[in-house]
């Protein structure tokens, strides 16, 4: 049951990702990206990380996609529709991508450490309490640094996007 659902969501997310890369219109790309994020959040639920699934929907589908759609509305995307890919020879990039993919697959699937059928640790899963303790006790300093980075990005985005008043 869970495996079938995983295969279904994985296939849907890969199809959505291909649509994102191959679509002519940036609006279609944005909608495909949103569909892909929804499938990935469903996969997070299957991997027993419900908090991450909800955060994924809130942050990516809720916030980041709205940002993308707003920027698509602000700029003129019609002239970009005409040509999808970079002009010239794309063969080196394709070869590089194929090499990268096969390298990752070979390295992961040939090493026997990841194909073990049973998980090594006791499998009662990660509770929300354990996650919160880990985030707010062990990783408190990175958490605060992340909040400072978010503040800096907020101020930087406002400064970059405003018109110059001089």
């Amino acid at each position: 049951m869970v495996q079938g659902l995983f295969l279904l969501f994985a296939a849907a997310s890969v199809i959505a990702a291909l649509t994102l890369v191959l679509a002519r219109n940036p609006v279609h790309s944005a909608l495909a990206l949103m569909a892909c994020f929804l499938q990935i959040s469903a996969i997070f639920v299957l991997l027993e990380a419900p908090l991450l699934a909800v955060i994924q929907i809130f942050v990516y589908v809720g916030a980041i996609m709205v940002l993308f759609i707003f920027v698509i509305m602000m700029v003129d995307v019609r002239e970009a529709v005409l040509q999808r890919f970079l002009p010239g020879n794309n063969l080196p990039a394709m070869v590089l991508l194929a090499l990268l993919g096969t390298e990752m697959l070979v390295l992961v699937l040939w090493s026997g450490a990841f194909s073990a059928a049973t998980p090594p640790a006791g499998g009662e899963g990660i509770g929300l309490r354990q996650l919160a303790t880990s985030l707010f006790a062990e990783y408190l300093l990175p958490f605060e640094v992340a909040s400072v980075i978010l503040l800096a990005a907020l101020v930087g985005a406002i400064v970059l996007a405003q018109k110059e008043q001089r």
Partner: peptide, 12 residues
Amino acid sequence: VIGAGGVLLRRN
């Protein structure tokens, strides 16, 4: 790999 293809190949 799909995302890297988008980064390397797309023009927009």
